[in-house]
Amino acid sequence: MTVASKPAPRATIDLWRWAGRAFLAVMMLFTLLPMVWMLLTSIKSGFAALQFPPQWWPNEPTLASYKKLLDPTSSVGEDFLRFFWNSLFVSTMSTILSVIVAVPAAYAFSRFDFPGRKFLFFSVLLRNMFPAVVFLVPLFILMRFLGLMNTHGSLILTYLTFGLPLAIWLLKGFYDNIPYQLEQAARIDGASRFQAFLLIIMPLSVPGIIATAIYSFIGAWNEYIFAYTFINRNDRLTLPIGIQRFFSESSSDFPGLMAASFMMSVPVVVLFLMLQRYFVRALTEGAVKH
């Protein structure tokens, strides 16, 4: 079926299409150019980076900055690799814990009808409203009181709570879309309520769990303000703080800084690109579909 009566819309559609393409092209440049410049700078020598006008393309590309960062025998490399490991440990632990805590909570909010259910759910959502700074001083005191200053435990505990609200919200949307007859069937088939959850519903919510995990991991990996406040010992620093520490000492080593920024971004970008379809699916099926 066509609306053949009007020749004009054809031209309008073309106009829109070209406008769309132009817009996309601009956005691609806006997104890519800063990252390209980061990469180009990272393969320059420290001297070449500080030239005016800049070398648009490095005259003598070098991987020296990367070698330095990844060389465990040099002091810079030793620090960098340790920061990297610290970040990995903290992020992984808080991700695992937040999944363990968020999954049953989201399931209960989706399925059960206990008094206070709505109140608790909205309190959880409301958490996201609190600015981090509100927590900073008291948590600083709390961590000092618990003897957790300068430990990764302080960060894991904090990141856990900060990822929870969105994780619970995302997962609840996911559970809302699984027909409750599946649990009924499982319970009649001989499963207890918890078994029905564990054996039938959990496996079905794997995409949602993956999405939640990505979100928690990226949040923890990139977190700055609490790590900046809670951790002072050099051997416990996470990447964002560590990088800041050792580049504030030599503020002109821009190739080193760009290489470190690149290395810091690689794990989360790779992780996200590998698993992004789960994330998009969780959003489509859970959060967005009202």
């Binding site: 005016f52 800049p54 990996w221 700055y224 800041q244 760009m258 971004s265 989360v268």
Partner: peptide, 26 residues
């Protein structure tokens, strides 16, 4: 995938990249 990257990378990294891009001399 490319358009998503700025959201995923560390804000610290992004801040350094742009600080360098905005650098008043270089």
């Amino acid at each position: 995938a490319i358009l998503i990257i700025p959201w995923v990378i560390s804000a610290v990294a992004a801040a350094y990249i742009w600080k360098w891009i905005y650098h008043s001399n270089f």
